[in-house]
C-alpha cells in the first residue's frame, strides 16, 4: 500500500469518481485555475476541463444553489466551500433546499450532491476561520454528515459520498491535509454510517471523529504506557451515527470519553452521550465525560488558542477521571 497524504487521498477520490461518472462535476472558489485553495483539486481542471471543474465568484449561497439546481435535473455536483466557515452564507441552500427537496417533493427529486471543504481550526486563524460545524449539520434530517480523520477514510468515504444519492456534507480537517497514511492501490469505497474501531482496549472507550481521531489515538498511545488500554471508536459519519459501534464498545469498557473539536452545548458529543445513557445505563461505571473546545470564540494568541482547543493532555485527563485515577 502506498503512503499518501490526506490531500492526495481526496484528490484521488475526486479524480476517480469524475472519471467514472461524467455527471459528476466540481464547483467552488479557486478549484480550477488556482488548483484549489488547499490544492485538493490539483490537476483536475487539466484532466476534466472547465465545464467539469468550475471556478465560481465568491458567492457561496449562489453556487450552492447552482449545485442544488443541477442535482434536481440529474447531475451530481460536488460543491467545494473554501472552508466550512464560509458555508454559513450558503446554509439556506444546504438546509432549506438540499436537505428537504426529497421529502417535500415526496421522493420526486433526490439530491445526489456533496458539499465539501475544510472544517475546524488550523493555527492562529482566529474566531471566524476556526470553527467545526458538524453538529449544526448533523441536526438536519435529510443530510448525511461525514467527517474523515485519516487518508484511508478520506478517500473511501469521499467516493461513497459522491456515489450517494443523498446530499452529503463532507467535512475535511484543515490540519489533516498534510497528514499521511496507507491507502490501498486498488479501488475501495467505505460505506457511510459505519464507525471504525481504530484501536482496541478494555478500560475506556474514546469516541471521536474527524481531526480528533489523531488526538484520541495519541492519547490512547500515551495511556497505554501507563497500562490503560482504550478503544478508539472513530464515528467517521456523524449522521447517520453508528450507534451499534458506540454501544458495543461502551458495554465492553463500561466507561467513555467523547472527544470532539466543536463546542460543548448541543455538540456531537451530547448526542453520543445520549445514545450511551439510553443503551448502556446499567453498564456504566462512571459518568461519561466530554472533551471539546472551550465555550468561547477562538482567540488568535497562541497560548489562549491552545487553551481553547481539545488536545491530548485534556483527553488523557478525562480518561483518568472516568477511571478514578488521581494523577
Amino acid at each position: 500500500m502506498a503512503v499518501i497524504t490526506y490531500r492526495e487521498a481526496l484528490n484521488q477520490a475526486l479524480r476517480e469518481e469524475m472519471a467514472r461518472d461524467d455527471r459528476v462535476f466540481l464547483m467552488g472558489e479557486e478549484v480550477a485555475v488556482y488548483q484549489g485553495a488547499y490544492k485538493v483539486s490539483k490537476g483536475l481542471l487539466q484532466e476534466f476541463g472547465e465545464m467539469r471543474v468550475v471556478d465560481t465568484p465568491i458567492t457561496e449561497l449562489g453556487f450552492a444553489g447552482v449545485g442544488v439546481g443541477a442535482a434536481m435535473v440529474g447531475l451530481r455536483p460536488i460543491i467545494e466551500f473554501m472552508t466550512w466557515n464560509f458555508s454559513l452564507l450558503a446554509l439556506d441552500q444546504v438546509v432549506n433546499a438540499a436537505a428537504k427537496m426529497l421529502y417535500m417533493t415526496n421522493g420526486q427529486f433526490p439530491m445526489p450532491m456533496v458539499f465539501r471543504g475544510p472544517n475546524g481550526s488550523a493555527l492562529q486563524l482566529a474566531a471566524q476561520h476556526s470553527q467545526a460545524w458538524e453538529s449544526w449539520l448533523a441536526h438536519i434530517p435529510g443530510l448525511k454528515v461525514v467527517v474523515p480523520g485519516t487518508p484511508y477514510d478520506a478517500k473511501g468515504l469521499l467516493k461513497a459520498a459522491i456515489r450517494d444519492d443523498n446530499p452529503v456534507c463532507f467535512l475535511e480537517g484543515e490540519m489533516l491535509y498534510n497528514t499521511k497514511g496507507e491507502v490501498p492501490d486498488e479501488e475501495y469505497v467505505i460505506p457511510l454510517g459505519k464507525a471504525d474501531l481504530k484501536r482496541e482496549g478494555d478500560h475506556c472507550s474514546l469516541i471521536t471523529h474527524g481531526k480528533m481521531v489523531l488526538v484520541a489515538l495519541q492519547a490512547a498511545e500515551q495511556l497505554a504506557k501507563e497500562g490503560i488500554q482504550c478503544d478508539v471508536v472513530d464515528l467517521r459519519t456523524v449522521r447517520p451515527m453508528d450507534v451499534d459501534a458506540i454501544v458495543a464498545s461502551v458495554k465492553k469498557t463500561n466507561r467513555a470519553v467523547v472527544v470532539e473539536e466543536g463546542w460543548e452545548i448541543c455538540g456531537v458529543g451530547a448526542q453520543v452521550v445520549d445514545y450511551v445513557q439510553r443503551n448502556c445505563f446499567d453498564y456504566l461505571d462512571a459518568p461519561v465525560l466530554r472533551v471539546h473546545q472551550a465555550d468561547t470564540p477562538m482567540p488568535y494568541a497562541k497560548a489562549i488558542e491552545k487553551a481553547a482547543k481539545p488536545d491530548v493532555p485534556k483527553t488523557i485527563a478525562a480518561v483518568k477521571k472516568v477511571l478514578y485515577i488521581d494523577d
Partner: peptide, 23 residues
C-alpha cells in the same frame, strides 16, 4: 421544479438548472 418557500432561494437553483442544460 416547485414551489419554493424562501424568498429568493429558488433563483440560484434556476441558475443551476440552466448550468445543467448547458453542461
Amino acid at each position: 421544479l416547485g414551489g419554493h418557500g424562501i424568498v429568493g432561494g429558488h433563483i440560484p437553483i434556476a441558475a443551476g438548472v440552466g448550468f445543467a442544460i448547458k453542461y
